[in-house]
Every structure is written in C-alpha cells, then in structure tokens.
C-alpha cells in the first residue's frame, strides 16, 4: 500500500509554474477539507479505541474499578497479584502450548496443502473441487466450530467410534472433558479452523513464484525436493514469517472457541489468558485484575505488532 501511496503523491506534485496566491488559497481550503471528511472516523476511533485503551490501562492501576464509584489507586499491586496467581501462570503456559501447536500445524498444513493443490499434474476441475473442500473450515463461525467439534468429540461420538473400529482405542475417550486430552483437543480444533487462511495466502504466494526458476532448476537436474527447499521455501519466506506473526497474535488472544468447548476446564487444563481475563471480569467481578491481564496481553500484542511492521517495512 505505502509504495503506491508514495508513487501517487509524486504524480500529484503541482507544477512549479503555478501562481503562488492560488496555491495558498487552495492549500487553506485543502487543510480544512480532509479534516471534514475524516471527522466521523476520528471521532469514532477516538471514543471507541483510544479512550478505551486509556481506560483499561488506568483500571489496571486501581482497585475495585467499575463496581465502586471511587476506586483506590494501588500502583503496581494488581500486576503483582496477577503475575503471582498460579492460575494465571497456568494460563500463560497453556496459551504458549496452544499457540505453538496451532501455529506450527497451520504452517505445515498450509504449506503442504498449498503445494499439493498447486501441483501441475492436477487437472483444473479436480483442483477447484479440492480447493473448495480445503477452504471449508474457514467459512465457519467460531460458535459453530465449537458445537460441531463437541459433537464429533463426544465420548459416544463419531470420532471415538472410528478409532474403536480401527482398534486404536478400546473405549470412547472424553476428549474435551478429561484433563489429559482437553488441551490437545482444543488445539486440534483450532488447527482445523485456522489452516485455510494460511493455505490461501501460501497458494497466492506460490502462484507468484516465477516458473523460470523451476524450469532452470529442472534443466540443472534438480529433484522435486531440491527445488522445494531451494526455490519454493526461500521465495515464500516473507509470507511465512508475516503469517506466523499474525497467527501468534490471533491465537494467543483466542477466547470464544475455548470458552464454548471447555470453558477453560476441566479444572485449569485449558485455562488461557483470554479465558482468565473473561472469568476475572464477568465471573468474579474483579475488573481491575481482568484489566491487568488484558493490559499484559495488549503489551504482548504490541511487541509482536512492532516486529511485524518492521518486517513489513523491510519488505517494502
């Protein structure tokens, strides 16, 4: 975007011969005009973005916010409370595993599927059919993803039936309600729901790689794997890196899917930062502690966003 913006700016520079007074008048009018057109945006974003962020940071330094009229300033005490809370520590640990598992699997599946879908030996018709099927999970609302997988993973559900028939297990596993498997189960659900987004970006990336590169590699006698590791992967590296950072940001904030499948349980086995924040706020009415954990999540997102935009700028 920024490149085209810069180009457009240059194109529009007024010729130097223009009369000065005319320019002045035009400039005065112009500085008022943009503000007018932008005012609804600025007001909305100020009221609903900037002020809320300010508020949540403020809340995190006070005690008993929202529920009492006059909250007390407590400095960093909320931060100490939250960081020392064993549940929060478990939430961080689970969030890390959940995010790591999801992002790695998204990457592997996204890359693998897009390479397969792009295979030259696939006909046009079968390619579009398979692409359609592979994209399917992406069109599902998170609430539907949750309910669908609760049915599939039910102790007497279809997955357990298939596993028993295949002889892999003897009795139905309570995937979502046993502490041993719940975290794995929600991670698998998240993998299912999230890989198509990667796949589509990678597909676009692969289609952008010049065919000549592969052609000359083949002339040099390179095998399929050699051209995959020496051409496809290096060419996709920028997309892979930026997609992974975005995915880490999104996955670490995950709330709705986990909330609707396990609610953070059993006990704390799928407790995550999003769930912890929600429970502190609307389960225990500890809005100050909830704000604190929300601010910690915000700091993490800002940190990753800065890395992301640095990388984007380098790419441009």
């Amino acid at each position: 975007m920024s490149i085209t913006a810069i180009k457009a700016e240059k194109m529009h520079e007024p010729p130097a011969t223009e009369v000065k007074s005319f320019m002045k008048r035009k400039h005065a009018k112009r500085s008022f005009e943009p503000l007018l057109y932008l005012s609804p945006t600025i007001i909305l974003l100020l009221v609903l973005m900037v002020i809320p962020v300010y508020l949540v940071v403020q809340y995190s330094f006070f005690d008993n916010v929202i529920i009492t009229q006059f909250p007390k300033f407590v400095g960093l005490r909320n931060y100490l409370t939250v960081l020392q809370d064993p549940t929060f520590q478990i939430a961080i640990k689970n969030t890390i595993w959940f995010t790591l598992g999801s992002v790695v699997a998204h990457l592997v599946l996204g890359l693998g599927f897009s390479v397969l879908l792009n295979s030259p030996s696939l006909g046009k018709f079968s390619r579009s059919i398979f692409r359609m099927i592979y994209i399917l999970p992406w069109i599902f609302t998170v609430a539907i993803v949750a309910i669908l997988w609760r049915m599939l993973l039910d102790p007497v559900g279809v997955l357990n039936y298939l596993l028993i028939r295949l002889g892999l297990i003897h009795v139905g596993v309570q995937w979502l309600s046993s502490p041993k498997t719940a975290l794995i189960a929600v991670t698998v659900i998240n993998i299912w729901a999230g890989y198509p987004f990667y796949m589509m970006s990678m597909l676009a990336g692969i289609q952008g790689i010049s065919k000549d590169l592969y052609e000359s590699a083949r002339v040099d006698g390179a095998s399929w794997w050699q051209s995959f590791f020496n051409i496809t992967l290096p060419q996709l590296k920028p997309i892979i890196i930026s997609m992974s950072i975005l995915d880490i940001i999104w996955t670490s904030q995950q709330f709705a899917m986990v909330w609707m499948t396990t609610g953070g349980g059993p006990i704390t086995s799928t407790q995550m930062i999003g769930i912890y924040t929600y429970q502190q706020a609307f389960g225990r009415y500890e809005f100050a502690l909830a704000s604190t954990s929300a601010v910690l999540l915000l700091l993490f997102s800002i940190f990753l966003s800065v890395i992301y935009s640095r990388l984007q700028r380098r790419r441009d």
């Binding site: 600025i42 962020v53 949540v56 916010v65 904030q253 929600y278 909830a290 929300a294 999540l297 935009s309």
Partner: peptide
C-alpha cells in the same frame, strides 16, 4: 501519524477492549 494509528488499532486484542467497552 493518523494512518499509522489506524493500522496499529488492528493489533489491539478484542479481549483488552472488553472491560472498558462494558463500562462505556
């Protein structure tokens, strides 16, 4: 600056905004 702010607003986690929104 304004453009930068608009881009960076996308990175704010919804769950962070949940509590102040509720109050607002």
């Amino acid at each position: 600056t304004l453009n930068g702010i608009i881009i960076s607003l996308q990175g704010i986690p919804p769950i962070t905004l949940m509590i102040p929104y509720f109050a607002l």
